[in-house]
Design a protein around this nucleic acid. Structure first.
Lengths: 227, 227
DNA sequence: CGACATATTGATATCCATCAAACCGGGTGG
DNA sequence: CCACCCGGTTTGATGGATATCAATATGTCG
């Protein structure tokens, strides 16, 4: 049920590169790189959205904080993903590096200028936003109508699809991050994972609890029920 | 916390009209009207998205059905609102008329053609999609982190803002619709409304339970906590 | 008026949050 | 190298919010 955001996102910076605005006249301003240490903030809510980012390495979470301390994670961004694209010119979420993370960034201003006369860029921007929308819609369904076990299964299913590189799912985010993403508590997430373990759906690798192997993809997918 | 989707949406068809594609050469094909009786389906999931709609009168719900019968309502669309705009060419939700409803519709194809060379249309499309995204994000927050009373308060607050016409909020949708929008059951919604009533936050008008007057806007807003 | 849908209210069950404690791995400093 | 601490995780016990089940009330439409 989760959208592969990655696919189309890659194409933005690619297409921008093709358009010659990337490493053209001024590579430092127009398309530069930056790294963030674990836990560091990339931007905060209501900050002017000066840049659009692409994850090159690591992982990023975008989240909101409520007045009473509750936290909502809207999405996780993995290598290849684009984030920080806003329409109103102001960030509606806060972005933080979950682990050591490297990003590429483009001045928003450049996009606007180039887009003005180019349908390809417009189409790409719209496509990116639509993918975000689709992810949000799927996530709404999860939050509205699914049990704790179904949510965790859906999360693992999503990660399994997005981290297809290896057999082992190496989760960069903590149980707390997962809980805040799924609208659950740490304890409930832990219990759900444990149950999936004892049910033989997954297994742990190594001594840390963040390296997971899916043993029974079919059962996992059956828990992540579709619309 | 809810976005006024209406504002920017009006401008799409206005700007399209200004562009001369509305009642220009072929008014019947390019910009026509249609009415749906209460409960009638406007389009279903995975149907090709041939048209974009604007509500003129009445109310529309867009929803998804899960395999086990659970239903999620993604949004309510009131007069002025645009709905049915998809990027992938296929509807991801089902749209149904809640009450007797009149819509205007535009062929998606026309948008594409005109947009191709016109930044204004692109900007409008992007803006519409961004508004939808923002609504979805706010709704995610609600579903992830709010209690039943907070959700119902947020819903009434949203409706109060969108139906500013009169003092009386005349809800077109049933308790079931509200429940499926908020991720609650009918009973819980009913109990929450009753509590707001006994607490003196709102009052009912007439003999139906769908005509509501907000007595204490401040307290209602205080329940609809912000990020 | 009667039948049916919609809404409210009540009683109970269930899932998940909360509170609490133990566990584990990694880092630090003696 | 080991003792200690500390953040993250797991596991257990309990309570509470909401779902579920059931009954009543109210409104609508024929």
């Amino acid at each position: 049920m989760f959208v592969s955001i990655t696919t189309d996102h890659r194409s933005l910076i690619n297409s921008l590169s093709e358009l010659g605005i990337s490493s053209g006249s001024n590579p430092i301003v127009s398309l530069s790189e930056f790294t963030y240490k674990k836990g560091k903030t990339i931007y905060i809510e209501s900050e002017p959205a000066e840049y659009v980012y692409q994850v090159r390495k690591g992982a990023v979470r975008t989240c909101k904080l409520l007045s009473d301390g509750r936290r909502q994670i809207g999405a996780f961004h993995l290598p290849g993903d684009i984030f920080g694209l806003e329409n109103g010119g102001v960030h509606r979420f806060r972005a933080e590096a979950i682990i050591q993370t490297a990003v590429r960034l483009i001045r928003r201003q450049h996009l606007e200028t180039v887009a003005e006369n180019d349908a390809v860029v417009w189409r790409t921007l719209l496509s990116l936003t639509t993918n975000n929308l689709q992810h949000a819609e799927d996530h709404m369904l999860l939050l509205e109508r699914k049990t704790a076990l179904e949510r965790v299964a859906a999360f693992l299913h999503e990660m399994d699809e997005r981290l297809t590189a290896a057999d082992v799912i190496s989760l960069p985010m903590s149980r707390r991050d997962i809980a805040d993403y799924l609208g659950l508590t740490v304890e409930t997430v832990s219990r759900a994972v444990s149950q999936l373990h004892t049910d033989g759906v997954l297994d742990f690798i190594g001594n840390t609890q963040r390296e997971i192997v899916i043993l029974d993809r079919q059962r996992l997918a059956s828990l992540d029920l579709q619309s």
